[in-house]
């Protein structure tokens, strides 16, 4: 564990709770992509199956349980409790266009052809693109609530911090996982446009709105 990973994990946790709290406090999930949230739930469930087979640490297990539970709770709030506020007209990204190719790639390019390893690989690939429905939704409506911007910034920062963690681990531990690194780069690159808008607008107290 190094500082980049720890802050990355905390940033990830913060993102999920900012979103949950936003939905809970406002009793509304307007502007949030339910499809991205379903993909994240799928990411956590397929990645953390090793909860049952492989104990690493209390921290590790606890975080996994929190990530699964909080994301499933978000999906529940969006599709059941506050379904009336869900903006499905703008959430039109076809997730099968992500899940199917990513599933195929996980079968073809993995470290080990075993069920758990293929699911882990699927999860890593899927996570890298799971935010696309949310970004697509913002591009359709042309704007995002400030709290949603904070959520996205924390969520994007998490993987960027993991990239620093992987650089650190490569130099100091000789550790290198090509699948995680490539997927992590793709994931971070997808946020670049958003990061630019966040830094130039939201940080200066303006609402995130896209140029017409």
């Amino acid at each position: 564990m190094n500082i980049f990973r720890l802050v990355g994990d905390l940033s990830h946790l913060l993102a999920i709770f900012v979103l949950l709290l936003k939905i809970w406090k406002s009793r509304s999930c307007a502007g949030v992509s339910g499809k991205s949230q379903i993909l994240f739930a799928l990411v956590f469930i397929t990645r953390y199956l090793d909860l049952f087979t492989n104990f690493i640490s209390v921290y590790n297990s606890l975080m996994k349980v929190i990530f699964i539970a909080s994301t499933v709770a978000t999906v529940y709030l969006m599709y059941i409790k506050f379904k009336a506020t869900y903006d499905s007209n703008h959430d039109t990204f076809r997730i099968e266009f992500l899940v199917v190719p990513v599933g195929g790639l996980a079968f073809l390019v993995n470290h080990d052809f075993t069920p758990l390893e293929i699911l882990w690989t699927f999860s890593i690939y899927l996570e890298s693109v799971a935010i696309l429905p949310q970004l697509f939704m913002i591009s359709k409506t042309g704007e995002a609530e400030t709290i949603t911007s904070h959520y996205l910034f924390a969520l994007g920062s998490y993987r960027a911090l993991y990239l620093l963690n992987w650089i650190y681990r490569y130099y100091f531990e000789g550790y290198f996982d090509l699948i995680a690194v490539v997927a992590g780069c793709v994931q971070t690159i997808l946020y670049c446009d958003f990061f630019y808008l966040y830094i130039t607008k939201v940080m200066w107290g303006k609402k995130l709105s896209l140029p017409a």
Partner: peptide, 10 residues
């Protein structure tokens, strides 16, 4: 370093 090492990450 094998792939298993990565699985201590979240």
């Amino acid at each position: 370093s094998n792939s298993r090492d990565s699985h201590d990450e979240l």
